[in-house]
Design a protein around this nucleic acid. Structure first.
Length: 554
RNA sequence: GCGCCCGUAGCUCAAGUGGAAGAGCAGCAGCCUUCUAAGCUGUUGGUUACAGGUUCGAUUCCUGUCGGGCGCACCA
């Protein structure tokens, strides 16, 4: 039996019970589904429906809950699902439902039957989501902040796909403009320096050592033949080198984008001018002080924005507008962008542009991931790309490993600043919670490999023997897994999955300490083997969604 | 000055569209002859920054105050 089916059928029974309360005209608007109480003593599923209808019934919620509790089993019986519920009772106004052993045990069979498909849903709609994230400028290595976006975006995409949605992971590549020019100038200066030619370093150039490394590489590759090469050549070389580096780190991290959209392509294909023309036609542009302005205040922004500078160059806003216009034209139903905290001010102006173009701005959703601050020896590490003082995403990956890095990044909500303690992450990685989860998985695998029970007994055990409290807790968590996935996906917030896995693992460790799986009693042993096999399946399933390995040995 | 985010146990943080305050670390006391001790058990720790408001109910929503982070370009 699937969790969603259990919820749905029980909801129907509850709906009937509510409908038959005296004095209620319509129940349609009063039903909000089930909650899973944090405290298991409050049952497996809980409904706050009494609170919603208390006012219109002019009855205290506690009284309503009691009435519902009295009748709930009767309605379950009528719906033919009486065997699913042990008891229903009213507590503090909630209707708390305690699932029967039968239905919980059936969840185990569901896990084993659907294997890695457990908790996932089939295609719900043809709507496609465009998820844009990282999108770091190819002027330097990825920072730890980009790493956070990479982790969040990648897992978000996996979560949404697990819920039957089509997702395109997209990287917006800023491959031209002033910063690329500055990278080219920096590279050129370093290159000439390597050749022993004195060349002043550009004032706002990139001071990072990686530029010097690349300059040395250019000397090895081209000798002095680039001495008189135009700036454009260095811009191209510098950018391509950074792009290779970025792609290589992302690959190491286990993240592959479905689409790379380049700003240069937007321009050369005429899409930027096209977008400007459309804005012009809508009367959203005007000339002032020698520049062209986008009248974004008309569409909710707090000030108008320059879109073409006095010198005739476009600001970054122009390609950004063209980019979002293009994404809507591609037919995406929803544009989901992960941006850094320094970009929150841009939401209003991009949305304003969408409104000006008569596009559905409410289908553009921007999630801001808060800052990542690095600390070393208890002190914050200064981060400046231009000055070249920073710890890169690659360095963290190399030191901490993919698994721990991913888990670490996903342990906080997006809204919460992430304090990345390098000493802790690097030197004490055994204490990272990811090992707690992986250890549970490895322990289970170890037991399974030692079991000598014949296969047939493993497949047809008497699961009714799983009646210890620790066994029931495990069953409860397995039951909850699909709900967790749905909630995380709906909220565009992956960190709940790490929280879930830690709790599931804890339940297993507690079970493991108290009970033996391999016993002289073949019946009980078989039942427990099936239980831990299902637990292992869900842990592996969850870790896989996080892009983290599930080791069989540790 | 304006905007966004944050403020929960000594520290780092959780807490399903408002729903019944939790974990880890640190401290203390225990548990390996037995499927992996990277584990488990017990214990200490709270006016959820403060003041109001809405609500049956507020850590959650609204207003204000205080404190912290980030952003407010004809830079990207």
């Amino acid at each position: 039996m699937q969790t969603a089916v259990i919820e749905k059928r029980l909801s129907e029974a509850l709906c009937l019970a509510v409908q038959h309360l005296e004095g209620l005209s319509s129940t349609e608007e009063f039903f909000w589904g089930w909650e899973v109480p944090k405290d298991p003593s409050f049952g497996d599923l809980s409904s706050p429906v009494s609170f919603r209808i208390a006012a219109s019934l002019k009855t205290p919620p506690q009284v309503i809950a009691q009435k519902l509790a009295d009748k709930f089993l009767t309605y379950c019986e009528a719906a033919g699902i009486a065997s699913w519920v042990d008891r229903a009772c009213a507590q503090s106004g909630f209707l708390n439902v305690y699932l029967s052993h039968t239905v919980l045990v059936d969840v185990v069979r569901e896990v084993l039957r659907r294997k890695s498909g457990y908790g996932k849903r089939q295609n719900r709609s043809s709507a496609a989501i465009n998820l844009e994230f990282v999108s770091a400028n190819p002027t330097g290595p990825l920072s730890v902040a980009h790493g956070r976006q990479a982790a969040v975006g990648d897992v978000l995409a996996r979560l949404l796909r697990s819920q039957g949605l089509r997702v395109t992971k997209e990287y917006y590549l800023n491959d031209e403009g002033r910063q690329i020019e500055m990278l080219g100038r920096s590279l050129k200066a370093r290159y000439l320096n390597e050749l022993g030619i004195s060349e002043p370093f550009p004032e706002e150039g990139y001071h990072g050592l990686y530029v010097i490394d690349h300059a040395k590489k250019c000397v090895r590759r081209f000798g002095s033949s680039l001495k008189a090469a135009p700036l454009r050549r260095f811009m191209e070389l510098g950018m391509q080198d950074q792009l290779l580096e970025i792609k290589s780190v992302l690959k190491k991290f286990g993240l592959q984008f479905d689409r790379w959209t380049s700003q240069r392509w937007l321009r050369t294909s005429g899409r930027i001018e096209q977008a400007l023309q459309q804005l012009q036609q809508k009367g959203a542009l005007y000339e002032a002080e020698g520049a062209t302005w986008f009248a974004s205040t008309r569409y909710g922004d707090d000030k108008d924005r320059v879109i073409r500078k006095r010198d005739g160059e476009l600001t970054y806003l122009a390609p950004d507008i063209a980019y979002h216009l293009w994404k809507f034209q591609k037919g995406y139903q929803k544009l989901l962008n992960l941006w850094g905290p320094d970009h929150h001010g841009y939401i209003a102006r991009v949305k304003a542009a969408m409104k000006a173009l008569n596009l559905p701005a409410d289908r553009l959703l921007v999630r801001i991931t808060q800052l990542v601050t690095l600390t070393r020896h208890g002190k914050p590490v200064p981060m400046s790309k231009r000055q070249g003082e920073f710890v890169t995403f690659r360095e963290v990956l190399d030191e901490v490993g993919v698994d721990a890095t991913r888990f670490f990044y996903l342990m906080r909500t997006l809204d919460s600043p992430l304090d990345f303690d390098l000493d802790l992450a690097k030197s004490q990685s055994q204490e990272n919670p990811v090992y707690y989860v992986q250890y549970a998985h490895a322990r289970i695998c170890s037991i399974l490999s030692k079991s000598r029970l014949p296969l047939r007994q493993r497949l047809r055990p008497n699961l009714n023997l799983l009646c210890e409290p620790e066994e029931r807790m495990l069953l409860r968590w397995l039951f909850q897994y699909p709900i967790t996935l749905r909630l995380c996906a709906d909220a565009f917030e992956p960190h709940g999955l790490t929280v879930f896995l830690r709790k599931l693992s804890e339940s297993f460790h507690v079970f493991y300490t108290k009970h033996r799986v391999i016993l002289d009693d073949p019946q009980r042993s078989a039942a427990r083997l099936v239980l831990i096999r299902a637990t292992q399946g869900v842990i592996a399933n969850g870790l896989s969604l996080l892009g983290i390995s599930a080791p069989r040995k540790m």
